[in-house]
Nucleic acid binder design. Structure first.
Lengths: 130, 130
DNA sequence: GTAAGCAGTTACCTTTTGGTAAGCGCCAAA
DNA sequence: TTTGGCGCTTACCAAAAGGTAACTGCTTAC
């Protein structure tokens, strides 16, 4: 009845709490419906507000504005104002934003693997019912 | 005025849509406040409901129950019922759940890097005000 | 002069997500 | 027999996230 003991529980726990916090931080910054879409859109190069809104299908100006503000605060996006007439405002990724690339890669690799797996499962269920 | 043209826009776009969907799928499954905490808790080994609730500080039974159901539906968790008396129910990760390890790793690495960076920025701001 | 684009803001509303507290049926120990 | 653990469910609420639509001031193009 006591195979429930584990070795190095303390190490595990400390490591694990740190990991949880770190993951929390990461998801805080790139979580939500739009953050990653905006980042990915800006990976193609700098863009103006309305241009960006047209690129990212379905986002409203309100949400885009607030997301851009947050991304700027978190150091992912730079807002450049060119004071010619007419005035031009451009958003671009910072160098720092490029550090999320590996995260994006792993996430999308796992995601597409998961997608394939879900399809398989659905197929199996369909066949077993037919 | 026209340095705004990009090469291989079509490739980029197709690749990018797929990536977005995949990332969406991934975040759907591991997103939210609790999913990853539960997964990480179960990485230590199988666990019973109340045990799990005690491990994961702050989660309510309602939320734990619904999260576990979702995780089961998505093939991450297996719910085992042992029909002795008294009846025992145990939750454990599936092999499939272990495939998210690399995601967790990258996410937590980036997250702790980000944490360090935030600290630095805050420190700089403090010093420049002093 | 009027329409249309730019870069947003504002007020309001709905949906999703998460939290609280209580309680249910079943069982076992004190 | 009451107390407590187990594995949840239920009803009710609150906060956060996201969506809609209208409108702002500015500028240029028709």
């Amino acid at each position: 009845m006591e195979d429930r003991k584990k070795k190095t529980v303390l190490e595990d726990d400390a490591e694990c709490k740190g990991q949880l916090n770190a993951i929390g931080d990461a998801l805080y910054v790139i979580g939500g419906k739009w953050k990653l879409r905006i980042i990915i859109a800006l990976m193609h190069g700098k863009s103006r507000f309305n241009e960006l809104q047209r690129t990212i299908a379905g986002i409203s100006s309100k949400v885009l504005a607030s997301e851009l503000k947050e991304l700027e605060l978190n150091g992912f996006v730079r807002r450049r104002v060119y004071t010619q007439t007419p005035i031009v405002i451009e958003y671009e990724l910072t160098d720092y934003a490029l550090t999320v690339r590996p995260v994006l890669t792993v996430l999308s690799e796992w995601g597409s693997m998961h997608r394939r797996k879900i399809r398989q499962v659905m197929k199996q269920e369909f066949e077993s019912k037919a």
